[in-house]
Amino acid sequence: MQKWTQDLWKAVVAEVERLHGSMNQKQTSMENLSQEVLESKKFLWEELEDVQAEMRLIYQKLKDQEVDITRNLVNIKKLRENQVRCTKFLAQLRNRGDASETVDHKPGNNKGNDDVCTHCKSLSSYSIRSEKSGPRMRKQRSHPHPHPKASSPVSFMSDSALHQHRGNS
């Protein structure tokens, strides 16, 4: 009976040791798994932060493009207005030119008018090209702000032509 008790006791001790070893293995596995989960979570947070930073950058680029498109549309509108003014002024100059040609037939007398006509025609053709290209106009990197006199429809006129234009307006 004593031998049987010792054998039983040995079997119970062996089973307890086996269970204890198994439990240690499972605990180690759980710790490893927990560490992997924490590392994955940290990696995912870093990735999320990177994606958020990229989204902010893309959003800012879109806002910048929106501002550029709006600025281009305003510039196109100004060009159209300048084209209309130049066309009206050109018509006035031509009407005056036709009247003065009957009085004075000397070539070169209308030199100022010819310069204005040439400038208005080039501005007109530029404006038409701008309309066709629409919001895809190239951004002027070297001169982002046009010269203040360039926006005025009469800034290119000679003093006498300017005086005549203002006198008739």
Rank of each mutant, 00 (worst) to 15 (best):
E101N: 15
G134S: 06
R71T: 13
F89M: 15
S100H: 05
T87S: 15
R166H: 07
I128C: 06
S169A: 09
H163S: 14
D104W: 07
G108I: 08
R166E: 10
W45K: 15
G134L: 01
S158R: 13
G167W: 01
K78L: 11
N75S: 12
T70D: 04
G21V: 04
D98T: 08
E131T: 11
E49K: 08
D114C: 07
K61A: 12
R71A: 12
L44Q: 08
E131C: 12
E66Q: 11
H143T: 13
N82F: 00
Q6M: 06
A91F: 01
P135F: 05
F156E: 14
M137V: 14
E15N: 07
H119Y: 11
K149P: 00
Q6Y: 05
M137A: 03
L93Y: 00
N110I: 04
S152D: 11
G97M: 10
F43C: 05
L123S: 06
V16T: 07
S127D: 02
Q164H: 07
D114F: 03
A14W: 03
F156G: 03
C120D: 07
R96I: 11
L79A: 11
H145E: 14
L93Q: 01
R18M: 08
G108R: 08
Q92H: 08
K149C: 02
M1L: 13
S22P: 00
R129L: 07
D115F: 02
M157A: 10
D50I: 02
K88L: 02
S125F: 04
G21Q: 05
M1Q: 14
K111F: 01
N110W: 00
D50H: 05
